[in-house]
Nucleic acid binder design. Structure first.
Length: 379
DNA sequence: CTGCTACCTGCGCT
DNA sequence: AAGCGCAGGTAGC
């Protein structure tokens, strides 16, 4: 650990494994440093950004039982945050109030024999910042994890603010940036610039979403994107929140549900993508029930955006899984997804998730020049 | 309303 | 070795 004042907490391996949680398409901005075996990102902690370092080490390595403990060490670069605040922030971020093993024994295994094959291996849902979650998942549409990751970093590097902790830098010598606010994006970015940076058609989605957020914050007297979005959440049911989220360009039901689950702690929400849809039909013999479909249709009649964007069949799959898995159905989905698909997606064919090194600027710059040429030729 | 397509890009595979 | 297909979808007809 680079920080002089680091703290730590003990956690069971089956409850939290950083390699499983931070690198499998839930959060896109943690960078793994191979030589120090640490994860690094920037996080907003009570209004202030810090460079956060995490390292997980196994305790009692000869213990082969599933009670195996690990120690998670944490610090901020330059000790910009006291360890008490940092620890409570991390407890919150990792949702340590929830025991996956309890959920497994109480809700999932008794109601679904398929979960015999999905004993907890350290996967859990995070409580991420709503604004960052929204933008990240706008980037995720029809895309792969490694490019989504690259895009999130480009967003920070180009439109965020560089953090320069006074004391030592970490040994990668790399820079750290805040995640840009909607104002940052509106003021500094353009659709063309984003396209040059490799965002493709999502460039437009991001610009329009940021513009709308700026307006909404202004109209409702907020300065912080996540605080505004949280205020929407606090005065909304899940259906209303999803309706609001789908009001942003590039946000359909799948992206909105990811934001509800991973950004707003709607633990029972199951984002239905192609994989979950396939699993529902193949493994759970899902079939459309006309009557429940009509009921949903009626329920959504007064939600114009939902009515327009929702796919009732996929939404019925979501409802089926909530009934089966209970109030933490979203967590069940996360574990099932990552066990069945995560291994092969955004990863090499041998099933290893590639640990991400920070990719530096030289290569990126060359690509940017090529791309802008291509774009100009097209027009 | 359900059912198509087009859409950017980069990486793995042939 | 150039080319195809795909990646946790969404918008627009």
């Amino acid at each position: 650990m680079t920080g002089a004042n680091y703290g730590s907490f003990i956690v069971r391996k089956k409850e939290l494994l950083l390699d499983n949680v931070l690198q499998v398409g839930q959060s896109f901005r943690w960078v793994y440093n191979e030589s120090s075996q640490e994860y690094v990102t920037t996080m907003k902690i009570s209004g202030q950004y810090h460079v956060v370092l995490l390292k997980q080490v196994e305790l009692n390595q000869d213990d082969e039982s599933d009670l195996k403990n690990t120690i998670v060490q944490y610090a901020t670069l330059g000790d910009t945050c006291d360890s008490k605040s940092l620890e409570s922030h991390l407890m919150d971020y990792f949702r340590m109030d929830v025991s996956v093993e309890n959920l497994y024994n109480k809700y999932w295994l008794p109601n679904d024999v398929r979960f015999k094959a999905h004993y907890p291996t350290g996967n859990r849902m995070l409580a991420q910042e709503p604004w960052e979650t929204l933008v990240s998942f706008i980037c995720s549409s029809n895309n792969n994890i490694s490019r989504i990751t690259k895009m999130c970093h480009e967003l920070c590097r180009n439109f965020g603010t560089e953090l320069k902790p006074e004391i030592d830098r970490d040994d990668t010598g790399s820079s750290h940036y805040t995640f840009p606010s909607s104002d940052d994006i509106v003021n500094k970015a353009t659709e063309d610039k984003l396209r040059e940076l490799g965002f493709g058609y999502r460039a437009k989605y991001i610009m329009e979403t940021a513009k709308l957020l700026v307006e909404q914050k202004k109209a409702n007297d907020f300065t912080d994107d996540s605080e505004y979005l949280l205020s929407v959440k606090d005065s909304s049911s899940y259906i209303e929140l999803r309706e609001h989220l789908m009001g942003y360009t590039g946000v359909g039901p799948k992206v909105a549900d990811c934001v509800c689950l991973m950004g707003f702690r709607h633990d029972d929400v199951v984002p239905v993508d192609v994989h979950i849809s396939r699993i529902a039909k193949r493994d759970y013999k899902f079939q459309v029930n006309k009557k429940s479909m009509e009921n949903l249709r009626k329920q959504y009649a007064s939600y114009p955006v939902t009515k327009k964007k929702i796919n009732l069949e996929l939404d019925l799959i979501r409802v089926m899984f909530v009934k089966k898995w209970g109030k933490y159905a979203g967590w069940a989905q996360g574990i099932l997804f990552s066990n069945e698909i995560g291994k092969s997606s955004g990863a090499t064919t041998n099933g290893d998730v590639k640990k991400r090194q920070l990719e530096l600027d030289i290569q990126v710059k060359e690509e940017t020049v090529e791309n802008s040429d291509k774009i100009k030729r097209k027009k």
